[in-house]
């Protein structure tokens, strides 16, 4: 999908996005010059460790960054011809839920506990579409059944606490997709779920993406999930994109030393009993990122010049961008 999609016009283009948090201890450059495209119909995964800026990126696209302390310092988020960062809040409310929807990690807290499931979905429809209440309810029930909730008429009248975790996440997805958005942002949608439920939800997302011809921006920390559902992958580290590639490319020929180290630190199913290769040190503090290449403090192939130059994304192979000028120089020393 990605190769063909890459030829077309992107659905959403992000250019040099910078979102900072102004705290009394300093400025957290959580998203610092991030650029990427999402093409129609593809699943783009954004992966990274805690504090890498992947969730802040998603919240910025949705216009949901809390201000203050957050502030979008610059960049563009182009949905078609419109720059979402320049839209007034009222226009942004029309975009949210209608053009772009989001599902969150915590299905328990993302649903309003005092409204029935059906009511919550109906309200989302009524917000964006000119339909009657009866029609909205019919559409809600149809959507609930589409996301695999058994006996949807009955479930529509139930409250969130009456549903299991997996069912709640299905209801969340139903609510996000009921207005047929062109882009679904899924922020760690399966992290709070058990593996067997997780695989159900991932399958569901994949089916719905095809059926609704939408794009999915999947925020995750789980490389296994990425491999299962993504077409293309963006790897983030310390507020920057360090690598961007098709999923097969990335997993078979990781370019950036960070991506390589990440793969090597996974406990593999093939080998057992050997010590894992670790990335030394800790994830850097967003208030105090290293100068130059932000990974240099933990990088096995760091050189003195890494401290002074900010590495740019360069095309290491067709459609495979890597932000490391030395990535071909044996960073993969096993």
């Amino acid at each position: 999908m990605s190769a063909e999609a890459a030829a077309g016009r992107p659905l959403l283009s992000i250019r040099d996005l910078r979102t900072y948090f102004h705290t009394s201890d300093g400025i957290a450059r959580s998203v610092d010059g991030v650029s990427f495209d999402i093409f129609p119909g593809e699943t783009l995964a954004v992966v990274g460790e805690s504090g890498c800026g992947k969730s802040v990126t998603a919240f910025t696209i949705m216009g949901l960054v809390p201000v203050p302390p957050g502030r979008v310092e610059g960049g563009e988020i182009l949905l078609g011809d419109r720059d979402l960062l320049k839209l007034p809040e009222s226009a942004m409310r029309d975009v949210r839920g209608n053009d772009i929807s989001m599902v969150f990690q915590e299905p328990m807290t993302s649903l309003n506990p005092i409204l029935t499931i059906g009511r919550q979905i109906s309200e989302a429809i009524l917000r964006h579409k000119d339909v009657t209440k009866v029609e909205a309810r019919r559409l809600s029930i149809e959507m609930l059944s589409r996301v695999g909730i058994p006996s949807p008429e009955r479930r529509a009248d139930e409250y969130p606490h009456q549903l299991s975790g997996g069912m709640k996440q299905r209801a969340m997805i139903a609510m996000a997709l009921v207005c047929r958005p062109r882009l679904l942002i899924a922020d760690e949608p399966t992290t709070a779920l058990d593996v067997t439920i997780q695989s159900q939800i991932l399958d569901l997302l994949n089916d719905l993406r095809e059926e609704f011809e939408m794009s999915v921006l999947l925020i995750t920390h789980d490389l296994g999930v990425v491999a299962e559902v993504a077409d293309r992958v963006i790897v983030m580290y310390a507020g920057k994109v360090v690598e961007s590639a098709g999923v097969v490319d990335l997993f078979e020929r990781p370019g950036h030393p960070y991506t390589r180290a990440l793969f090597r630190s996974l406990p593999s199913l093939e080998h057992r009993g050997e010590a894992l290769q670790v990335i030394p040190g800790n994830v850097p503090n967003p208030l105090d990122f290293p100068s130059g290449c932000r990974f240099r403090t933990r990088c096995p192939i760091a050189r003195p010049e890494c401290a002074t130059t900010d590495p740019q994304l360069i095309e290491a192979a067709p459609r495979h961008l890597v932000a490391c000028p030395f990535s071909s120089d044996g960073g993969d020393a096993q």
């Binding site: 992966v47 990274g48 460790e49 805690s50 992947k54 969730s55 802040v56 998603a58 919240f59 969150f104 990690q105 915590e106 807290t109 922020d187 760690e188 399966t190 992290t191 779920l193 058990d194 593996v195 439920i197 997780q198 925020i219 920390h221 789980d222 490389l223 296994g224 999930v225 990440l262 996974l266 406990p267």
Partner: peptide, 14 residues
């Protein structure tokens, strides 16, 4: 439940 977790976001908000 992750076979290969890079992180567990501490508070979900990110």
């Amino acid at each position: 439940s992750n076979a290969t977790s890079i992180e567990s976001p501490p508070d979900g908000s990110g």
